[in-house]
């Protein structure tokens, strides 16, 4: 990618971190403030969607406002030979938002699969954990769930 395109993409990110203009022609409005054509802006968004720098464009609901007040970070010790195949299945579950493989830290931390589970109550989280447990089957050695009890800081990541 050329330096000029990189610079334009960075300016698009900065200009839309807070959201899109809520006017009938939002891309034209945004393009005007950036000094580019609407067609060029649309092309950059398409490129950023294609390489996943933009995950998606749309509405972002507030978990709590929708009643998803119980959030558990579930952690699993899964056989290394199967963790990628099973991780993809766990990540595809509708109630799992983030699913990652991360390193174990023996002897303190035996878990290599992290899956964030969102639900409307802790009972519902526990039921969801049962679904994950069943899915992991014999590849699972141990697991735990960590409920958040307090947000100590939430400033979000600063983008470009």
């Amino acid at each position: 990618m050329s330096a000029a395109l990189q610079d334009l993409d960075a300016r698009i990110v900065r200009a839309t971190q807070g959201g899109l203009p809520r006017v009938p022609e939002p891309y034209a409005a945004l393009a005007a403030t950036l000094g580019v054509s609407e067609a060029q802006l649309l092309e950059r968004f398409a490129a950023m969607l294609a390489d996943r720098r933009v995950r998606r464009i749309g509405v972002v609901p507030n978990h709590y406002a929708l009643g998803y007040t119980a959030n558990g970070m579930s952690v699993w010790d899964v056989n290394d030979a199967q963790v990628d195949a099973l991780g993809r299945q766990v990540g595809a579950l509708a109630f799992v938002s983030h699913c990652y493989r991360r390193p174990r830290r023996p002897p303190d931390w035996p878990y290599n699969l992290f899956a964030m589970v969102h639900a409307r109550s802790r009972d519902e989280v526990e039921a969801r954990l049962g679904e994950i447990r069943a899915l992991l089957g014999a590849a699972l050695r141990a697991h735990d769930v960590l409920y958040s009890t307090r947000i100590l800081k939430k400033t979000g990541l600063r983008l470009s």
Partner: peptide, 16 residues
């Protein structure tokens, strides 16, 4: 009313 936190593109910070 706070039902939505944002409207617009959702960026992947790591890929940026």
């Amino acid at each position: 009313d706070g039902t939505l936190t944002r409207f617009g593109p959702l960026f992947d910070a790591e890929r940026l």
